[in-house]
Nucleic acid binder design. Structure first.
Lengths: 146, 146
DNA sequence: CATGAAAATCGCCACGC
DNA sequence: GCGTGGCGATTTTCATG
């Protein structure tokens, strides 16, 4: 992937609804050339999708937390992500190195919803949890430097 | 915010480039009514932006980590987010409750780039760091349940 | 707030280089 | 791969109920 592709990806990761016309202007190419490149970036899996970001507070999920997970049985099968996939409060699930096995990022409506969620996670997955509550978010989802 | 707005936000957070025409069809409204609502959702700060998501591995940032931060001086001013804002490897910065003060999500090209980044963070902010390396990501940036 | 229609803009494809 | 041209679709605005 070279210069122009990087520029296109960078522009789209800052404004996912930028028109091909504007994209072409800022990339210094014709519209059809940009069109071709964007389609290729999509099919090649460089661009994995487009999303609208929304303020979690406004949509009723003001409480964010990171939940670190340690299985009770260290030899248990590693299928926790699938087991938890249906729990929509979980925004992200990372397998990690270190003392614990997974880190989840979760969003809920209230402390008691967090309590319920943790209970649910422990039950579904037979794990212990350690929760770090987010007090404020200075920034998140910043576009990568490409 | 009521039913139709929630539906619109939900659709756009799954496909940020969905056309107004398609949005209108799925929301059961005319195109211009949907247009009006989307503009309002944007200006009201419900929808905060649109982004293309891209595969960090493909763009040369295969290593993700969470960096937990504890200031050496507990009485130091709380301006760490601003001090670190220029460091583009930092994708997110959360102030958190608990033993540590902040959690950063970072993406780098290699272990040695991570080493440099940690050094940079410690120098800029006069803090100690604890780093949890991500081994694999089952999912992230999942749209919220609205 | 919703609608429908008009005007401007855009997405997309075919073609030639 | 890139550019040009053109047509149908989409976006955007506006007048109206």
């Amino acid at each position: 992937m070279e210069e122009i592709d990087r520029r296109i990806v960078s522009l789209l990761s800052r404004n996912g609804r930028m028109s091909f016309t504007e994209l072409a202007r800022q990339a210094g190419l014709s519209v059809s050339a940009v069109h071709q490149r964007v389609r290729r970036l999509e099919t090649d899996g460089v661009i994995t999708g487009y999303v609208a970001l929304c303020d979690p507070v406004v949509i009723g999920l003001p409480l964010t937390a990171f939940v670190s997970i340690k299985p009770f049985d260290p030899a248990a099968p590693d299928d926790l992500p699938e087991r938890l996939a249906g729990v929509t409060a979980i925004e992200a699930c990372h397998s990690v190195a270190g003392d614990e096995s997974y880190i989840l990022k979760v969003r809920v409506a209230s402390p008691s919803a967090l309590e319920d969620l943790l209970q649910q996670i422990r039950t579904i997955a037979n794990v212990s949890t350690r929760t770090t509550v987010v007090l404020s978010t200075a920034y998140e989802n910043r576009p990568p430097e490409i």
